[in-house]
Design a protein around this nucleic acid. Structure first.
Lengths: 230, 230
DNA sequence: AAAGGCTAAGTGATTTAGTCACTTTGTGAC
DNA sequence: GTCACAAAGTGACTAAATCACTTAGCCTTT
C-alpha cells in the first residue's frame, strides 16, 4: 500500500507559491492590492482561468481577497500559521461539548501565562472586551472577544491564533452557547473577575477562575436541550 | 470606516457549499470519489472552469484531492475544524521560538489531561511513537508523532487537531529542531519518561516532565546558531 | 464652492468550445 | 494466464469573448 499519495506539485501549486513570492518580495501587507488576474496572466504566460484557480486556493486560506470590480487584495490571515477551516462540518451537541472540552484544557494554562506576561495595552483591550460584551444588542461579530484577547495578552501570537481559530470555526456554536448560558450577566461578571486576576498578575487565580468559568459554561450546555442541527 | 468587508456569498462560495452538501448527503468519506468536473458542470448548469475554481478552494483546505487522469476524491482533512495553513510564511528563529513558546503553554496541560483519560489503545500508539522515533534514518513523515499521539490520548479530537496543526505547519522548523536538539537519544529518553507517567496516570508528573522536555528543547534552539532562512 | 449624477476605464465573474495529458479498464493476442 | 494495447473517462489548460461591478474623474446643477 502506497501510503503517501505525494503527487508532483501541480502548476496551480507552483503558481500560488509564485504569487505569494510576489507578495513577499514587494512586502505587501493585508489590504494591499495585488496585480490583476489579467496582469498576472500576462506575466506568467498563462490564461486567466488558470490564474483564478490559484487565486481561489489562496482565497480559501484567507491569503487573498477578491473585491468584485475593484481588484484582488492581500487578505487578513496571510501570516497566520493555523487556520479555522472555512468548510466546517455541521454542528452537533457533541461537537459543542468537544469544543468546550478543548478550551478547558488550553485556556486555563493560557490565562496563567497571560497573567504573568500581560502589558498595559493588553489590559486596555481586555477592559474593552469586557465592557463591550454588554453593548451590542444584536451586535456584529467584530467586537473584541474576551477569550481571544486573553490569549493575545500572553504575548505569543500563535496562542492568539489557536484560540481565535477554535472560536471562529465554532462561531455558530458560540452564539448558541451565549444564548444558553444565562443572560450574559454572569458571563460578564466572570470575565471581569478573570481580568482582575490578570491585572493583579495572580496567575494561580486567573487559571482557577478561567477553569471555573468554562466549567460553568459546559454545565449550562450539557443541561440544555439542544436545538436541531441545520 | 466600514470595518466588516462582508461581501455577499459569491457563486464560488455557494458552489463549495453545494459540493460539500453532496459529499455529506451521500455520506462520502476520505478517499471516496466525487463526481467529475464535467458531471458537476452539467448538474449545476455551469462550466468547468467555474467548477474547478470551487474545487480548488476545497483542495486548499484538504477537503478534496485531485488525481490527474483519475478523478477528484474526498480529502483527509474534510472533518477537521482547525487547519495548518498550507501557504505558510517563511521560517525565522523567532518563529521557531514562538512555536515552542506556544507548545510550552498548551502541551503540559494536554499531558495532564491525557494522563487521566488515556485508554489502552492510546498507550499502544504512544509506545509505537516512542519506539519508531529511533527507527527511520531519513524516514518519511508518516511516522507517528509522539506529541500528537499524546494529545490524541486525551480523547478529544480537537486537541489532537490543534497539536497536529501546530506541528505540521512548522514541520520544517521541527526538522531543524530535531537536528539541533542533541542526537535524539535524549529526546527518546524524555518521551519515554512522559509515557511512563501517562501510563501510571500520574497527571502531575506528566505535566512536569512535558514542561521540562519543552524547556530543554527551547534552550537548545535558543543557544544554537540558526541556519539561514530559505 | 459644494453636491450630485454621468461616463469611461479597469477589474472580477463567467461562458463557450476546444486540445492535451494522464489513468484506468477491458479486450484480444500470445 | 499474462502482457500489450486501444479506448474511454478524467483532470489540466488554452483561447477569446461577454457581462457585472467598482472607482475615479468630469461635468452639471445647486
Amino acid at each position: 500500500m502506497t501510503y503517501s499519495t505525494a503527487q508532483p506539485p501541480s502548476l496551480s501549486d507552483r503558481l500560488t507559491e509564485a504569487i505569494l513570492g510576489i507578495i513577499r518580495d514587494q512586502d505587501l501587507g493585508p489590504g494591499d492590492a495585488i496585480p490583476s488576474a489579467r496582469e498576472l496572466a500576462k506575466r506568467f504566460e498563462l490564461t486567466t482561468p488558470t490564474i483564478r484557480e490559484a487565486l481561489r486556493k489562496l482565497e480559501a486560506t484567507g491569503a487573498v481577497e477578491f473585491r468584485h470590480g475593484s481588484g484582488t487584495y492581500v487578505g487578513p490571515t496571510i501570516n497566520n500559521v493555523v487556520l479555522a477551516n472555512p468548510h466546517r462540518p455541521p454542528i452537533t451537541k457533541q461537537s459543542v461539548l468537544q469544543l468546550i472540552g478543548a478550551r478547558l484544557v488550553i485556556e486555563p494554562a493560557v490565562a496563567r501565562e497571560s497573567a504573568l506576561s500581560r502589558g498595559e495595552q493588553n489590559l486596555e483591550r481586555l477592559e474593552a472586551a469586557v465592557t463591550n460584551a454588554l453593548v451590542p444588542p444584536g451586535g456584529p461579530a467584530f467586537a473584541l472577544n474576551f477569550h481571544v484577547e486573553l490569549a493575545a495578552a500572553s504575548g505569543n501570537p500563535l496562542l492568539e491564533e489557536v484560540l481565535a481559530s477554535l472560536l471562529k470555526v465554532r462561531l455558530r456554536e458560540q452564539q448558541q452557547i451565549r444564548q444558553l448560558y444565562d443572560n450574559r450577566e454572569r458571563d460578564h461578571e466572570e470575565h471581569r473577575a478573570i481580568l482582575d486576576a490578570v491585572r493583579a498578575q495572580d496567575a494561580e487565580e486567573a487559571e482557577r477562575l478561567t477553569r471555573e468559568h468554562l466549567d460553568n459554561i459546559r454545565a449550562a450546555v450539557d443541561a440544555a436541550d439542544f436545538p436541531e442541527l441545520s
